[in-house]
């Protein structure tokens, strides 16, 4: 790993003030994410893995410490600049897909392109191309409730890829899927990393899933307690 990290987390803490008690969701975490890496984040419930993912993806400002995205500190950015950074640098994949139910697959994928201020014709062209790429060329005008779970997650992946971001952030991407479609989605994510060179950060609580990454970070009580390379990371399991 040489060169500047895409995302750098420097001694970050996130403290939630719950009245009488303070909850330390993250406690002095530091890590670098370099271009092309595939890192999975594991840990028991409440260990802070989702909070770490939120901080890594510029959704959440840390209480202490600093996050750098492409070398720029996020504490110096206002909310709109942060939205811009998210829109251009990071693609999100969620456990519950988080598609907008009133919109067709195509419209969902076009949405981040609208926020990135692309022309209407370009939005449509890109969205159609990516949906075809994830195998939904014949489902573009279906709404989320007319699609299977696996198909919905493909739409979400297409949406994440629309703005051609450097980093893909996936929060339990197979958590709501059966084994067969889950495996297909993981294969897709792995290809994003190995064939398209996307940097991938993925939260999971399943060891089998975590293993497909190059590296796994293990969190407990808001701290990184283990960081290890997976033997066959990035290749077929």
């Amino acid at each position: 790993m040489t060169g500047k990290p895409v995302i750098k987390v420097d001694n970050v803490s996130k403290v939630y003030d719950m009245g009488k008690v303070q909850v330390r969701a993250l406690d002095g975490v530091s890590m670098d994410v370099h271009k092309g890496q595939f890192i999975s984040i594991m840990g028991p419930s409440g260990s802070g893995k989702t909070t770490l993912l939120d901080v890594l993806s510029a959704l959440l400002r840390p209480t202490h410490g600093e996050v750098f995205i492409n070398g720029k500190p996020i504490s110096k950015m206002d909310d709109n600049q942060l939205a811009g950074v998210r829109g251009q640098t990071i693609g999100f994949i969620f456990q519950t897909f988080n598609l907008i139910s009133r919109m067709s697959a195509l419209e969902n994928v076009m949405l981040p392109l609208w926020f990135a201020e692309k022309e209407q014709s370009e939005r449509k062209e890109i969205a159609e191309e990516i949906l075809t790429q994830v195998g939904l060329g014949d489902r573009m005008h279906h709404r989320p409730n007319e699609l299977s779970g696996g198909q919905r997650q493909r739409v979400a992946i297409a949406r994440a890829l629309a703005v051609n971001p450097d980093v893909i952030v996936a929060d339990e991407p197979t958590g709501n899927l059966d084994t067969v479609s889950g495996d297909q989605i993981l294969e897709l994510i792995r290809n994003l990393n190995s064939k398209q060179g996307k940097t991938v950060l993925m939260v999971t609580h399943e060891e089998d899933v975590a293993k497909i990454a190059h590296e796994t970070i293990f969190l407990r009580d808001g701290k990184i307690v283990k960081r290890y390379k997976n033997g066959r990371g990035g290749t077929k399991k």
């Binding site: 939205a83 998210r86 829109g87 988080n98 926020f115 990135a116």
Partner: peptide
């Protein structure tokens, strides 16, 4: 609320 959250996450600015 959730829809707004999604839109913000994927790059919608406050003016948008």
């Amino acid at each position: 609320t959730k829809e707004v959250g999604i839109m913000k996450a994927i790059g919608a600015t406050t003016p948008k």
